[in-house]
Design a protein around this nucleic acid. Sequence first.
DNA 1: GACGCGTGGAA
DNA 2: TTTCCAAGCGT
Length: 354
Amino acid sequence: MPDLFAEKLLDWYDNHGRHNLPWHHDRNAYRVWVSEIMLQQTQVATVIPYFEAFMASFPDVQALASAPEDAVLSHWSGLGYYARARNLHKAAKQIVEAYDGEFPQDQEALESLTGIGRSTAAAILAQAFGKRAAILDGNVKRVLARYHAVPGWPGQSAVLKQLWQHAETHTPNHRVRDYTQGIMDLGAMVCTRSKPKCDSCPLNSGCVAYAESQTHLYPGSKPKKQKPEKTTWMLIFEDTEGRILLERRPPSGIWGGLWSLPELDPAYGAEELQEACEKELGLVCSDPELISGFRHTFSHYHLHIQPARLPVSGNTRIADSESQRWLHRDEALTLGLPAPIRSLLTEPEQSALL
DNA sequence: GACGCGTGGAA
DNA sequence: TTTCCAAGCGT
């Protein structure tokens, strides 16, 4: 007996799905891979311009593997989750060295590459090679949780396991590429988080949540937690030539590997800033000019950023190095910068949210 | 298994 | 304004 789920979905995809996304053109494993990494936890509309620019600079896996990491991070600036860029670059080197530049075509080998997990490996297999492989991204989770009325939050492993089971069961043996794209499109366009368009859904006749008018209950919501508040000084040191001091952040943690402004312990008061800069950083500054602080919200905490501009008259310790550089503003903006730092440098007056 | 990791859009 | 969460993965 044919799986009507897949057949109905494929028919819908032919008529209503998305067939013209940038990574659908000149489709190959490299383009599919880069798009899948960029699309992790990131919406399609956000990704498109980044994908185009990335492909123009790194058209194939060899170009990416031989590029400096800074260039890769610079292309990721503003996209977030920067470990994705570092892992992508690392995996490109692995593919060139271990696989002679040819992508492996089995699930296990793909998952051994940095940054490729179960769902991304499956997406590459299906999209690039037409092989049968089940995916389970946020869209598919929502479709399946509603269709089968799977209770609970998908962050719980028991719930996730059930959803994977359903995903495997529904994945057809033919037209896997279209099916995979189709079920994601359905989740993005019809089975949306709020106000799903059930009337025009090809799967509504078999959908349990729809039959019970309970689509809003699926998937179960994440338990909410209080976000902690953190505070930091962000220092804009400016020398007599108009150059600014940038520091490379450690490879792990927030904004890992990106360039940012030097920070100082928030325990220092504004009046202690000048002295602290000389003591801790070896920079002789005149009075700090306090810029309006603002609160930046991350996934797990709020960060109160207190910017201060400090004209530097003497420099006793810091010189350009691997992790510290004096740059003019326009040069700084070519580096891989976190979005809030980029806007702080381009429009400091508009960062005044508080 | 729980947590850390960014940003922007939608409600 | 705040919260949620979007083509997840590594530790």
